[in-house]
Amino acid sequence: MELRICIDVDDMERAVAFYTQGLGLQVGRRFKSDFVELLGAGSPIDLLFNAPGSKPIASGPGSESVRNYGRHWTPVHLDFVVEDIDAAVARLQQYGAALEMPVTERVWGRIAGLADPFGHGLDVLEFKGRGYDEILHPH
């Protein structure tokens, strides 16, 4: 089974710059001006242009909702593992990310919480030692 991650954005070129220049992903295919595939993560990420105020679904529960690219919370977010978290955070901020949780030390490494320019939350992680295995089997 393949997992594809879809991210709605309201400015395709800004989104491409944020995810390629900010995180080091590469443009795969450009299907149309409103659909760009990004490669370089564990799963392809599809940037989908959808205008602010448009409805994400036509009917049923949630159909009264409209797209809003201000900061919003959802129980799903993306974690990007990086080699140098300080450089990644600085780069992402340069491309429009808002730092919401400064770099914090954990037993498994370091984490920072950000929001992309489209209101989506994301974390960057820098593992140390055995990464998450440090939680399961501490020294």
Score class of each variant (00 low, 15 high):
Glu2Ala: 09
Leu3Ser: 07
Leu3Trp: 08
Ile5Glu: 04
Asp10Lys: 07
Asp11His: 04
Met12Val: 05
Arg14Gln: 10
Val16Phe: 03
Ala17Asp: 05
Ala17Lys: 05
Ala17Met: 03
Ala17Gly: 04
Ala17Tyr: 00
Gly22Val: 02
Val27Arg: 02
Arg29Leu: 15
Phe31Arg: 06
Phe35Trp: 14
Glu37Ser: 11
Leu39Tyr: 00
Leu39Cys: 06
Gly40Trp: 02
Gly40Tyr: 03
Gly40Pro: 04
Gly42His: 03
Asp46Gly: 06
Asp46Arg: 06
Ser54Gly: 01
Ser59Pro: 10
Pro61Asn: 04
Gly62Thr: 05
Arg67Met: 09
Gly70Ala: 15
Gly70Phe: 15
His72Met: 14
Trp73Val: 07
Trp73Ile: 08
Leu78Ser: 02
Ile85Lys: 01
Asp86Asn: 10
Asp86Ser: 13
Asp86Gln: 14
Ala87Ile: 00
Val89Ile: 09
Ala90Leu: 11
Leu92Trp: 04
Gln94Gly: 08
Tyr95His: 14
Tyr95Phe: 11
Ala97Tyr: 00
Ala97Glu: 02
Ala97Met: 06
Ala97Gln: 03
Ala97Arg: 03
Leu99Asp: 03
Leu99Met: 07
Thr104Phe: 08
Arg106Ala: 15
Arg106Tyr: 15
Gly109Glu: 05
Ile111Ser: 05
Leu114Trp: 04
Leu114Pro: 01
Leu114Phe: 01
Ala115Tyr: 12
Asp116Trp: 03
Phe118Leu: 07
Phe118Val: 06
Glu126Trp: 09
Tyr132Asp: 13
Glu134Gly: 08
Ile135Arg: 15
Ile135Asp: 15
